[in-house]
């Protein structure tokens, strides 16, 4: 495989990473039956707060490693607080989760714009690539997957760990149960609402890490308007496309980043002759098309074209059923 292609694929893995982390964070939340619609604003504000914290820590300690760690923690904390408000509003105060999430996404984005101005264009610490000793020597796979930043490795561990947790452990069973059948989980002695708080805040913290992954790595620094805005909505769509399954969510993020890289590559070589307008429209058309693909009605119609033998396998692959109790309240009384 030629070197250029390997570089492109490695770049896709790197740029997909914030989407993977945010998508997995939201998967954790939605599997528990809560919708956190605040992703777009959360990621933006976390990116800014993470960047500011990293700058401050760098100035105070002079160590980039400490600064980056502080930045990521501050970013995680920011989105965890936002997710806590979603849980507070949706669970304890019994308001509509979509409404609370929508207001929060706008609020977080506006706060970021308000406090972000002075940080525009400043240089800050950046997470460097750390090749993994032996694995990075494997031909082809090594440079693509294992010559990356620590955050990328974190995303691998996260996706495998989350899959194992959700489908191979008792705790994971309870996690899915409170999103599918909260009443049954309650009857078995699970404290549904307390667990929902826990997973919402945990998933929120991961969304924050995704924000930090932008401002400290993938799109280092801060710009006005923020250059990652819109990605939170895309991450939310990827969760649906991924059928709330860790591997499929991650796959969705990689596919998306891949198509975006392709569009960018085509855009920068004018001789191919695809109009720029189409390329700018691409992510959003993709978003609609992918959601179309996983909606049950469209799948059935599409499957009719395929030979019968493949139909069942395709159906199982494409089907994406949301957790049955997603976005609903649970009252133990």
């Amino acid at each position: 495989m030629n070197e250029q292609l390997i570089n492109i694929l490695a770049g896709i893995v790197a740029t997909a990473t914030p989407l993977v982390i945010a998508g997995l964070g939201e998967t954790i939340i939605e599997r528990a039956g809560v919708v956190n619609l605040s992703l777009d604003g959360s990621i933006t504000l976390s990116a800014l707060v993470g960047f500011i914290a990293a700058l401050a820590a760098q100035a105070a300690t002079g160590s980039d490693a400490v600064a980056l760690l502080c930045g990521l923690l501050a970013a995680a904390l920011t989105s965890a607080v936002i997710a806590f408000i979603v849980a507070l509003g949706g669970i304890t105060l019994r308001q509509d989760q979509v409404a609370v999430g929508f207001v929060l996404t706008m609020l977080a984005a506006d706060i970021a714009q308000f406090i972000g101005q002075p940080y525009t264009g400043q240089l800050g610490p950046q997470i460097l690539i750390t090749p993994i000793p032996i694995l990075s020597q494997i031909p082809i796979i090594g440079p693509i997957l294992f010559r990356q930043t620590i955050l990328v490795y974190f995303s691998y561990v996260l996706m495998i760990g989350l899959w194992y947790w959700m489908f191979r452990t008792r705790g994971g069973l309870a996690h899915r149960a409170i999103g599918e059948r909260p009443a049954a989980a309650f009857a078995r002695g699970t404290n549904v609402n307390r667990l929902r708080y826990f997973y919402t805040i945990l998933g929120g913290a991961l969304v924050g890490v995704a924000g930090g992954a932008y401002s400290l790595s993938v799109k280092a620094g801060w710009t006005t308007p923020p250059n990652m805005s819109g990605d939170g909505w895309i991450a939310l769509a990827i969760v649906i496309f991924g059928g709330w399954h860790p591997f499929r969510v991650a796959l969705g993020a990689y596919l998306f980043a891949g198509l975006r890289a392709l569009a960018f590559a085509v855009q920068s070589s004018p001789d191919i002759g695809i109009p720029v307008v189409l390329l700018n429209a691409m992510p959003w058309i993709l978003m609609i098309v992918t959601l179309l693909l996983v909606s049950s009605g469209s799948i059935e119609r599409l499957l009719q074209i395929l030979p019968r033998s493949v139909q069942k396998r395709m159906r199982n692959f494409l089907r994406a059923e949301p957790p049955a109790a997603l976005g609903t309240r649970f009252d133990p009384e």
Binding site: L37, G230, N280, A281, I285, I288, L291, G297, S298
Partner: peptide, 30 residues
Amino acid sequence: LKTRLGVHEIFGGVALNALANVLSIYLISG
């Protein structure tokens, strides 16, 4: 998109918002 094709109006809406903006920029610069 919502009623016939099963795309939730929030996501359909977000995408259509962006597409309207892309179209306006294309028309204005083209």
